Amino acid sequence: MTTESTVEAFRKAESLVAQRRPLEALHVLGPVLEIAPDKPSVQLLAGRAYLFSAQFQRAELAFLRVIELDPSDHYARLVLGRTLQRQGRLSEAQTQVRLAATMYPDPAYQEVLGEINAHIALDPRSSE
């Protein structure tokens, strides 16, 4: 795969994720993941596709890889928090989203944090 075709495949996968066609995106992204597994942008896109296709453990691993490669990536922490939330791991989700909101004080991040906090308040056992 040439550099040009790798970029083209990445862009196509981005478009498919935006269209909420994550399984198709993962199919297109497969060769890119093999060539560039240590590119945060590639792992982030794969993580989003995994998340949108309810492959939560794979999404979690992809987002953790992004954070390993770039600890300052606030968006990776936000979507990792969402992934953990979807798995019912609210305490871990709260930690990641709180970090993301601290790193990037955006109202949307605060809203996600508030949602997780509300779930924890309704069921304190969920934060264990």
Rank of each mutant, 00 (worst) to 15 (best):
T2D: 15
R11D: 09
R21M: 12
A62D: 05
F63M: 08
Y75S: 06
E68D: 15
R98P: 01
Q19H: 09
Q85M: 14
A25V: 06
F56A: 10
L113H: 02
S5M: 10
T95K: 03
P37H: 14
A59K: 03
S41R: 01
Y50C: 01
E128T: 10
I67A: 04
Q110Y: 12
E60T: 08
I120V: 14
R58M: 06
S127Y: 07
K12V: 01
Y104E: 14
E92P: 03
S41D: 08
P107I: 12
R77E: 04
E14T: 07
R82T: 01
A101K: 07
L90F: 08
Q57W: 15
A108D: 13
E128N: 14
R89L: 10
A49L: 02
H119V: 07
R48P: 00
L51R: 00
S53G: 11
A59T: 07
S53F: 02
R20N: 13
E14K: 09
A121T: 14
T95R: 03
M1Y: 14
Y109I: 06
V66T: 10
D38V: 09
R86H: 07
V7H: 10
V32S: 01
S91R: 12
V66E: 00
S91N: 11
R86F: 07
R65C: 05
V28N: 00
L90E: 00
S15P: 03
A62F: 00
E128F: 15
R125S: 15
Q96K: 06
D123Q: 12
N117V: 05
R21Y: 08
E4I: 03
E14Q: 13
S72Y: 15
T95C: 00
Y109T: 02
F52E: 14
V42I: 11
G81K: 05
A18M: 08
D106I: 10
E92C: 04
L64I: 12
P71G: 13
V17K: 01
F52Y: 13
A76I: 07
Y109L: 15
R98Q: 15
L61G: 08
M1D: 11
Q43Y: 04
D73N: 15
A18R: 06
L113K: 03
H119T: 10
I67L: 10
P105H: 13
I120S: 09
F10Y: 09
Q19Y: 09
I35S: 01
R77P: 02
R48W: 04
D70K: 15
E111R: 15
L99M: 08
E115K: 05
L90M: 06
L33Y: 02
H119Y: 12
E92V: 01
D106E: 14
A9D: 05
